[in-house]
Deep mutational scan, measured.
Amino acid sequence: ETIMEVNLLKGPKGLGFSIAGGIGNQHIPGDNSIYITKIIEGGAAQKDGRLQIGDRLLAVNNTNLQDVRHEEAVASLKNTSDMVYLKVAKP
């Protein structure tokens, strides 16, 4: 597993990826991690090219996303300014 830091500039459609996982909404049984499950065509993440489906999202800005509820992860992604710092684990 490789840890990678990505600074992503939000586009008109936001960050351009979808997530799944978290406490109460496990993407993988027994694993509370938050995973990237979709990269949106023409979105910021696709244009940047570094994020991939299956990457594990560890942090957004200063918010640690390990062992959080799905709703908390979504809220932390929404409550960001235009430049967003992401910390991901690549499988």
Rank of each mutant, 00 (worst) to 15 (best):
G54N: 10
V84I: 13
G30T: 06
V88W: 04
G14T: 04
L9F: 05
K78W: 07
Q26P: 08
Q66C: 08
E41K: 13
G54T: 03
V60Q: 01
V6L: 11
N25H: 11
G24K: 14
G21A: 03
H70V: 06
G54Y: 04
G22P: 02
Q46F: 15
G11M: 11
L86W: 00
L77H: 01
V88H: 02
I39C: 05
L86G: 00
I40D: 12
K38F: 07
M4V: 06
L51G: 00
H70F: 06
T80A: 15
I53V: 11
S33E: 07
E72M: 07
A45E: 01
T2Y: 15
I28E: 10
N32V: 06
N61W: 02
F17L: 06
G49A: 07
E72Y: 12
I28S: 13
I39Y: 02
I40T: 11
I40R: 12
H27N: 10
Y35S: 02
S33L: 04
A89F: 15
D55G: 04
R56Q: 15
K10I: 14
S18L: 11
L65I: 12
G42D: 12
L9Y: 08
V6C: 04
D48M: 03
L86D: 01
L57N: 00
P29F: 14
A75Q: 11
M4P: 01
I53L: 08
A59T: 11
I34A: 03
R69H: 07
V60D: 01
V68K: 15
K47C: 04
K13M: 07
K10R: 06
E71C: 10
I40Y: 08
K87A: 03
M83F: 07
V60S: 03
A45S: 07
N25I: 07
A59K: 15
K87M: 12
Y35E: 01
N64C: 09
G30L: 08
N64Y: 06
Y85A: 15
N62P: 00
S33D: 13
G16C: 01
E72I: 09
A59M: 09
S33Y: 07
D48W: 02
Q46K: 14
E41V: 11
H70A: 07
Y85M: 13
A20E: 14
R50G: 12
G14W: 02
P91Q: 15
G22A: 02
L15C: 03
I23F: 07
R56C: 14
K90W: 02
Q46P: 01
I19S: 03
D55M: 10
L15A: 04
G14K: 03
D82F: 03
L86M: 14
A20Y: 07
L86R: 00
A73K: 00
E72C: 09
A59L: 09
T63S: 14
Q52E: 10
P91I: 07
I36D: 01
S76N: 04
N64P: 15
L51T: 02
G14V: 02
T2L: 11
I23Y: 12
H70K: 07
N64G: 12
G21S: 03
I36S: 00
V74R: 13
I23C: 12
S81F: 12
V60Y: 03
L58Q: 03
L9M: 07
L15R: 01
P29W: 10
E5I: 15
G49K: 05
K78H: 15
N64V: 08
I19G: 01
I53Q: 13
E71M: 08
A59C: 14
R56I: 15
Y85C: 14
E71A: 12
Q52C: 09
K10T: 07
V84H: 03
R56S: 12
Q26S: 13
I36V: 15
Q46S: 13
T63R: 13
I34G: 00
D31R: 06
G49T: 04
K13Y: 05
G24S: 13
A44Y: 07
N79E: 11
S81Y: 07
N32F: 04
I34Y: 07
L57C: 03
